[in-house]
């Protein structure tokens, strides 16, 4: 069964720690990353424009300062945000993605600086073409800078929308369930508003041999098990 699951396509990235704990993350691909970059570029451009207005009146000194500021923003905007904001520039925050080291530890100064300096190579020959090609070909969606620094961009979705559990008296499961089965039943209870009633009955009747019930009764019973698994007694 396990090998079967390995073959299934997914964007999942797994790391096993020395303690034998498996950490997992969902890799982020070119589209969300490009959009996050777009937001960052817009923010940077806006900041540079706002700063340049008063500096315009400062003559050559102003121009010099402008150039320095532009340089710093261009190269260190991502570094500073990635290090101090848990791997998220404002654009990445909008798209709920984040940079981490490839062992899923938080990104540090060194790695962040490397990945953002190699941006230059990614940009070649025009508008991040090299980076895009690298991202599409690489199994972990890494651009050249990521490969050099050993970093990944992953999805960091915020807590999902709150759900309401259906009214059902808690029921003890009739047999021991493994983790995936428990998750399926809990999911069945949690998603009662998204799934249509007919579909819920259909799903519940798959387990007829276990629940010994049919139709709406089976649905209510399974919801009860779900509530029990979530701690209701």
């Amino acid at each position: 069964m396990y090998s079967e699951r390995l073959e299934r396509l997914d964007t999942q990235y797994l790391v096993e720690t020395a303690e034998g704990i498996e950490l997992q993350a969902q890799l982020a691909g070119p589209v969300p990353r490009a959009l996050a970059y777009l937001i960052d570029v817009s923010i940077r451009t806006l900041v540079v424009m706002l700063l340049s207005l008063p500096l315009m009146f400062a003559g050559k000194f102003g121009t010099g300062l402008m150039l320095i500021l532009t340089f710093l923003l261009e190269w260190f905007y991502p570094v500073v945000f990635e290090v101090f904001r848990h791997g998220q520039t404002p654009g990445k925050k909008c798209l709920q993605i984040a940079v981490v080291n490839d062992d899923l530890t938080p990104i540090s100064w060194g790695t962040s600086i490397i990945r953002n300096l190699v941006r230059f190579a990614d940009f070649l020959p025009f508008a991040y073409l090299a980076g895009l090609i690298s991202m599409v070909l690489n199994g972990n969606f890494q651009r050249l800078g990521d490969l050099a620094a050993g970093t990944l961009v992953i999805h960091r979705s915020q807590s999902d929308e709150p759900f309401s559990l259906p009214q059902a008296s808690p029921q003890t499961p009739p047999l021991p369930l493994d983790l995936e089965e428990q998750m399926a039943i809990v999911g069945f209870a949690e998603r009662h508003q998204q799934l249509s009633d007919e579909r819920q009955q259909e799903l519940a009747e798959i387990l007829q041999a276990i629940t010994q019930r049919r139709g709406q009764e089976a649905v209510t019973y399974l919801r009860g098990i779900g509530a029990w698994l979530l701690g209701a007694r």
């Binding site: 699951r5 073959e7 299934r8 396509l9 997914d10 964007t11 999942q12 969902q26 890799l27 982020a28 691909g29 070119p30 589209v31 969300p32 798209l95 709920q96 993605i97 599409v136 070909l137 969606f141 999805h155 979705s157 999911g187």
Partner: peptide
């Protein structure tokens, strides 16, 4: 026989999955 991992994903994650599918096939 589904060949992708069936689980709940956000829309962006789904797009990334699409890229993985296109790469595989």
């Amino acid at each position: 026989r589904i060949s992708v991992e069936a689980k709940l994903r956000g829309p962006w994650e789904a797009i990334d999955l699409g890229f993985v599918m296109a790469r595989r096939w």
